[in-house]
Design a protein around this nucleic acid. Structure first.
Length: 219
DNA sequence: TGTGCTTCTACCGTTACTTCA
DNA sequence: AATGAAGTAACGGTAGAAGCA
């Protein structure tokens, strides 16, 4: 385990505490306005005291996060600009993803701190990474199924040809009728002919087995 | 014990930006 | 230099789970 993984694991163990309070969605204007609305309606509610505490902590967290990630979010006009993660950041995120493709609050906090990113950025990265993995897996599955389909189509074609060849042969109708009466044992998968019986010497309960024979009609 | 509310998180679809051929 | 495609960071909405009163 390299230094990063050691410290990452350590962070996972020690990173509890405030983490559960900090709402990590920085741009959730909807969510925060919802909190503020609740507080405004019911000041004596204990749950809303908690919400108020969260709002304060959230604001603090935002300030800290914004300081940390100040060089990753804005351009000259104050508009948010999409940022390319550095190679080091991507590598560390990839390493974390290899260990676990989901991330809890403590891990997120630790990783964000380590990478000088917002927790929201780490969260979003994991979401997108999972989406990419899923998409890739879907593509792999599609290719696999396509190959299966192609192979089966090919086999089907060969079988059809064989059938045509057999039909082309001058086989008497009586023989065809006989063949169409052949049956296959569902237990041992052996084909047997009418009036021949199913002579399985290993069978102790032949009577029971015979009851499960199914007749395969050959067209 | 059931219910309603809040919070958190995963997921999805989409948008917008960046990079590259 | 312009452009279209591919990659991806970020967003908003939704649903489900968990905790609490």
């Amino acid at each position: 385990m390299d230094d990063y993984h050691k410290s990452f694991t350590l962070d996972l163990n020690l990173g509890l505490g405030l983490g559960s309070y900090v709402q990590n969605n920085v741009n959730k204007s909807l969510a925060s306005s919802k909190n503020e609305l609740t507080i405004g309606l019911n000041h004596d509610n204990k749950a809303n005291e908690l919400s108020l505490k969260r709002v304060h902590e959230e604001q603090e967290a935002h300030t800290i996060e914004e300081e940390i990630a100040i060089d990753t979010t804005n351009d000259n006009n104050g508009c948010t600009k999409k940022l390319r993660l550095t190679k080091e950041q991507s590598t560390m995120l990839e390493d974390a993803f290899k260990l676990h493709n989901t991330i809890n609050t403590a891990q997120k906090r630790a990783l964000a701190e380590k990478l000088n990113l917002k927790q929201r950025q780490v969260e979003v990265w994991f979401q997108n990474r999972r989406a990419r993995t899923k998409l890739k897996q879907t593509e792999v599955n599609y290719m696999f199924l396509k190959k299966c389909h192609d192979k089966l189509s090919e086999e089907n074609l060969i079988l059809k040809k064989e059938l045509e060849e057999l039909r082309a042969l001058k086989v008497g109708p009586s023989n065809i009728t006989q063949a169409s009466k052949w049956t296959i044992c569902s237990s041992c998968k052996k084909i047997w002919k009418p009036n021949e019986g199913h002579n399985n010497e290993d069978d102790d309960d032949d009577v029971v087995r015979k009851s499960s024979y199914s007749t395969i009609e050959i067209d």
